[in-house]
Simulated assay, not measured.
Amino acid sequence: MLTVLANGTTFRVLYVEDDQQMAAAFYQAFSETASITIVASLQEALYYLKADPNIDLVVFNDRLNSTSFLNAIRDNQQIGKLSTILLTGESAVDLNAEPYRGRVIDVFHYGYSEAAFQTRLSYLILKKQYAEKKHSAEDEEHEHAQGRMPIGKRLFDITLSFLLLLMISPLLLVVAILVKLDSKGPIFYGSKRVGMGYKVFSMYKFRTMRTDADQMLASMASKNMYNVKKVEEATDQICEECQLAGGICQRPLFLDDKQVCEKVHFRTEKAKAMFSKFKEDPRVTRLGKILRNTSIDELPQFYNILRGDMSFVGNRPLPPYEAEKLTASGYARRFAAPAGLTGLWQVTKRGGAAVSDQERIQLDVLYAKKYSFRTDLMIVIRTLKAVWQKENV
Rank of each mutant, 00 (worst) to 15 (best):
residue 147 G to P: 05
residue 150 P to G: 03
residue 151 I to T: 03
residue 154 R to I: 05
residue 155 L to T: 03
residue 155 L to H: 07
residue 156 F to W: 01
residue 156 F to T: 04
residue 156 F to N: 01
residue 157 D to C: 02
residue 158 I to P: 07
residue 158 I to F: 08
residue 160 L to S: 11
residue 160 L to D: 06
residue 162 F to N: 08
residue 162 F to Y: 06
residue 163 L to E: 06
residue 163 L to D: 00
residue 164 L to F: 02
residue 165 L to M: 04
residue 166 L to D: 01
residue 171 L to R: 04
residue 171 L to M: 07
residue 173 L to P: 06
residue 176 A to V: 07
residue 177 I to K: 09
residue 178 L to N: 10
residue 178 L to Q: 09
residue 178 L to G: 13
residue 179 V to M: 15
residue 180 K to R: 15
residue 182 D to V: 13
residue 183 S to P: 14
residue 184 K to P: 15
residue 186 P to H: 10
residue 186 P to C: 15
residue 186 P to F: 10
residue 187 I to K: 10
residue 188 F to K: 15
residue 188 F to S: 13
residue 189 Y to A: 05
residue 189 Y to W: 12
residue 189 Y to G: 06
residue 190 G to F: 11
residue 190 G to H: 11
residue 191 S to D: 12
residue 193 R to P: 07
residue 194 V to S: 02
residue 194 V to T: 03
residue 195 G to V: 06
residue 196 M to K: 05
residue 196 M to P: 12
residue 197 G to P: 07
residue 197 G to E: 02
residue 198 Y to G: 10
residue 201 F to W: 05
residue 201 F to M: 08
residue 201 F to I: 03
residue 201 F to T: 10
residue 202 S to M: 10
residue 202 S to E: 11
residue 203 M to Q: 00
residue 204 Y to T: 15
residue 204 Y to W: 12
residue 204 Y to D: 05
residue 205 K to W: 11
residue 205 K to Q: 06
residue 206 F to Q: 05
residue 207 R to I: 02
residue 211 T to W: 14
residue 211 T to H: 08
residue 214 D to L: 14
residue 215 Q to H: 13
residue 216 M to V: 13
residue 216 M to D: 09
residue 221 A to P: 03
residue 221 A to R: 00
residue 221 A to I: 04
residue 223 K to N: 07
residue 225 M to A: 00
residue 225 M to P: 00
residue 225 M to L: 06
residue 226 Y to F: 00
residue 226 Y to T: 03
